Amino acid sequence: MALDGYTPVPPTHVAAVVTYLEMREPPPPLSREPEPEPLRLAEIGADLARYRALYAAIGEPWLWFGRARLTDDALLTILSDPDVEALALIEDGRDIGLLELDWRQTGEAELAYFGLVPEAVGQGRGRRLMEAAVARAFARPIGRFWVHTCTLDHPGAVAFYRRSGFRPYARAIEVTPDPRLTGDLPRDAAGQIPLLAE
């Protein structure tokens, strides 16, 4: 791959710039008046159908494919690990957000997946869910909490993570088969990203 200029990407693939961000300690708490009602979070555990439905509802508009490509056995292995916590944010009896934390690397926590269904974005829920993520991550003895996002994700993702206390530390380019062509996602997912091969 060229380190200066353009690098062609096959029409069967997509490419994204990935930004890695981290925090070494939790940011100071925000004071609010009055204190809002606690978020209703529920463990998803081994409920693969629930996890996959929520993951798709949040991620298909942004071409999330990582978990979509996994077999049920592979996904169950991750979600059953005691060092992985997948939680659904529930409102009015339905799942509207996903918070997945991963402590499998010694001394650190990864914010593996984080998001809200499209109709729940922009109303303060993401900030509150991130506060819960930070508190849960640092409830264990870790030296850093990290996340990565990419240019296929919501355009405000990096700014949101920075406002939440994360600092960017690395970038990479990811090139992968287009998940809409492999059958991992519906062909009409992420309509803002054109399909180049039919």
Rank of each mutant, 00 (worst) to 15 (best):
E131Y: 04
R136N: 08
R162I: 10
G165T: 04
F160E: 01
P168Q: 12
V158A: 01
V147Q: 15
I142N: 10
A170V: 04
S164V: 02
R163P: 05
M130A: 04
A139I: 05
A137T: 02
R163N: 12
V134W: 00
C150S: 14
R144T: 15
H148P: 02
I173A: 13
A170W: 09
T176E: 05
R167E: 13
S164Y: 02
R162G: 04
P141M: 05
G156F: 10
A137M: 05
A139D: 15
F160T: 02
S164P: 09
A159T: 10
R171I: 06
M130R: 03
G156A: 13
P155E: 02
R167G: 11
C150Y: 04
A133I: 02
I142L: 08
E131N: 12
H154C: 01
G165Q: 07
A132V: 04
F160S: 01
F145H: 15
A172M: 03
A133S: 07
E131V: 07
P141K: 08
E174V: 09
R136L: 14
A159Q: 10
F166T: 06
M130K: 03
T151M: 03
E131M: 07
A133N: 02
A157W: 03
I142S: 09
A132N: 08
H154F: 02
A157I: 01
H148M: 11
V147M: 14
E131T: 11
V175H: 12
R162Q: 15
A137I: 05
A159S: 11
T176N: 06
W146A: 05
G143A: 13
I142R: 09
